[in-house]
Amino acid sequence: MPSFTSGLVRDFDVLELLGSAEAYDQGGLGVQAIAEHTGRDKGQISRVCRTLHETGLLERHPVTKRYALGHRLYAIALRTREAHLAGLAQRTLLELVVQAEESAHLTVLRGGGVLTIRTELSQHTLRDGSMSGMTLPALRTASGRAILATFTDKEVEAWWDEHGVYRPPPENAPRRPRDTPELSKLRRQPGSIRSLNGLRRVIREVRKVGYAVSVGELNPDIVDAAAAIVDQTGTAVGAIAVGAVRERIGTHYELMGEAVTTHARRISDLLGGSPL
């Protein structure tokens, strides 16, 4: 039996076991099974699991009493993944700014919104500004459309059922960070996509050309294009977007689309993925 000198190491042993394929396939493991796998005392394992459950690192099924990895652990993993993604994307975003001479953004889908986790600004006086830390309505953004285009048809329908129609937050809900009055108003107003069929039409076009475009949906003077970043499982983990002043870009949206597609593919390659 291994010799443990740290409570953290012992607890990690339990977390690692519950992250295994066996635990996932069985919907978690009970205290007895965890004790047998780790070679530790059942009473000790019971106390460890109870503590981890109280902190949100584990969840316990109310009927089977089996433990599984909890929501808090997944939240930590998500933040870690996004930090890793931001690090990978920095050089690519800078290269995109040089190539397109426009501001470039790295975004991720969060429920019904798109969160910008990194922005590199162009040197133009008139430019698409920094949106780092902002969450924008997914349907209005090229990033949201590009990511949704990687979903299966059933996933798109499920997403629409939950997020397609604006629902005001509860009165006691905290205000979103950097949510200006203009953004709050924007969330309440319908964009060009007003139905599930409308979303499906947009997605078909995105899948056809490999990138998404949004014209004047967030700001009447700005057009943005985006392409999804996918990992080795084929899951979209984010998108690369570039925003430009419409007066400067004209109708040459395909040039923006080709640029974001190229740079999104570079990051996807680093993650072992194959984009649209």
Rank of each mutant, 00 (worst) to 15 (best):
K154N: 06
L139G: 03
V114C: 08
T152N: 03
R140T: 14
L121Q: 03
Q123T: 13
T119E: 01
R118N: 11
L148M: 14
T150V: 11
S130D: 15
M134K: 11
L115Q: 13
A138M: 07
G144V: 12
L148A: 05
L126D: 13
A142W: 06
M131S: 07
T135V: 15
S132N: 00
G112C: 12
T135C: 01
D153V: 08
V114K: 01
A149Y: 06
S143M: 10
G111K: 08
A146N: 01
T119V: 08
T135M: 10
R118D: 12
S132Q: 15
A138T: 06
D128S: 14
H124M: 09
T135R: 07
D153Y: 01
L139V: 09
A138S: 12
S130V: 05
D128Q: 02
G133N: 05
S130M: 02
T152A: 04
T116K: 00
L136W: 11
H124Q: 14
D128Y: 15
R145V: 04
I117Y: 03
L139R: 01
G129F: 09
G112H: 09
G144P: 06
V114I: 15
S143N: 01
P137R: 02
T150R: 06
S132V: 15
A138Y: 07
S130N: 14
A138E: 05
R145G: 04
L121F: 03
L136Y: 11
V114M: 05
L121S: 04
G133E: 05
L136V: 14
V114E: 04
P137A: 07
A142D: 06
E120R: 10
L136I: 15
G129A: 13
T125N: 04
A146P: 04
K154L: 13
L126N: 07
R127A: 14
A146I: 13
T116M: 03
G133M: 02
M134A: 09
L148Y: 07
R140G: 04
T119C: 10
S143D: 07
R145L: 14
F151R: 04
M131T: 13
L126S: 13
T152S: 14
L136H: 09
R145Q: 14
V114R: 00
